[in-house]
């Protein structure tokens, strides 16, 4: 049964990829990208990687196609036809890379095999002892937020840096941190969508908080909660306009929050340093080791969630500011 689902999903993925290559209209290809993201998310669910599926559904199928659509609204919706098409060299390059990748997979152990190298090294310890050492049921969260907290700090820093880079590249001169005004510009109102979204957005934000604080027990955590929270805010911004959403969460506040999240994460680590222990050793936080782990994981997951949500909202603001500037 699961095989049938896999075959159906994979063939839809292939069909989407092929039509992505063939299609010329940029809006159509963005929609296909979104479908690709949704299909990948479903695929992750069938592979029991629900944590990844959350993020993929929110970012791959929601936020990133939206940012692409906003870009297309700025630059025009038809891809320029190249005058002379050199197809031979790119085709050769792609074919060689593809063949190499397929050859590379031949050496891999079969999917799910117990003696795969990835399952030999530290994985058994994580799987068998995280229950006693960390005391939370979701092993993904234990690995991500405790055993590998240092790596996750790196990931959060990457996201933070990406947010800064987008602000630097897209910052409008002279309008740093200011809330745009919508004087005189009447947005087309859509009563049905506005009313329904007003009903649904609070539940989206509530669900994001649930994912944030339930991440130790079920699928979820800071990254997932952050993107879901940001999706809710972005939806609000799309329907009610940039000025309204900027009044709800002013851009300077979001930028400060993005930095604060990283700071919260790093300070949790520094607390351990002050006590003369290794960076991000949670045992300083409480006398009982399991309680200390719990506190530490909650703190850094909160930092991750705040940073991810703020960075995504910041990126949306940057794109939307350009769009409203162009429409002026």
């Amino acid at each position: 049964m699961e095989l049938l689902v896999d075959i159906a999903l994979l063939s839809m993925l292939v069909a989407t990829a092929v039509s992505l290559i063939l299609v010329r209209g940029l809006v159509a290809s963005i929609m296909l990208t979104s479908i690709y993201g949704l299909l990948s998310a479903s695929f992750f669910v069938t592979m029991d990687a629900v944590d990844v599926a959350f993020t993929e559904a929110a970012v791959g199928a929601g936020v990133s196609p939206l940012l692409l659509l906003m870009t297309v609204a700025l630059v025009g919706r038809v891809e320029q036809q190249p005058r002379k098409r050199h197809i031979a060299f790119p085709l050769l390059l792609v074919t060689v890379t593809g063949v190499l990748l397929i050859v590379g997979t031949l050496d891999m152990p079969p999917f799910g095999s117990a003696d795969a190298p990835a399952l030999q090294h530290v994985a058994p310890r994580y799987l068998q002892q995280s229950g006693e050492e960390i005391g939370i049921p979701n092993v993904v969260t234990s690995v991500l937020a405790s055993y590998r907290a240092y790596d996750t700090l790196g990931e959060v820093l990457v996201i933070f840096t990406a947010g800064i880079a987008v602000i630097l590249v897209l910052m409008l001169p002279g309008r740093r941190g200011s809330v745009p005004d919508d004087a005189g510009r009447q947005r087309p109102r859509n009563v049905v969508v506005n009313v329904v979204s007003k009903i649904l957005i609070p539940f989206m934000l509530l669900f994001a908080l649930y994912v944030q604080f339930h991440g130790e027990y079920g699928p979820g955590g800071g990254f997932q909660a952050g993107v879901i929270f940001a999706s809710g805010i972005i939806l609000y911004g799309l329907l009610y306009g940039l000025p309204s959403v900027c009044r709800v969460i002013p851009p300077p506040v979001v930028e400060a929050l993005a930095a604060l999240g990283v700071l919260l994460y790093a300070l949790t680590g520094v607390l351990a340093l002050l006590d003369g222990r290794p960076f991000l050793d949670y045992s300083v936080l409480a006398t009982d080791p399991v309680t200390a782990q719990y506190l530490g994981i909650t703190a850094i997951e909160l930092g991750v969630g705040v940073t991810v949500a703020s960075v995504i909202i910041t990126i949306f603001y940057a794109f939307a500011a350009h769009l409203s500037e162009a429409q002026r």
């Binding site: 087309p188 859509n190 049905v192 969508v193 329904v196 979204s197 009903i199 649904l200």
Partner: peptide, 20 residues
């Protein structure tokens, strides 16, 4: 419940976008 809200709204938004 979510589908009851979102499905018809999506169709409506799509049709309205096409009309506009």
């Amino acid at each position: 419940l979510f589908l009851m809200f979102s499905g018809p709204t999506a169709s409506h938004a799509l049709a309205k976008a096409a009309w506009q």
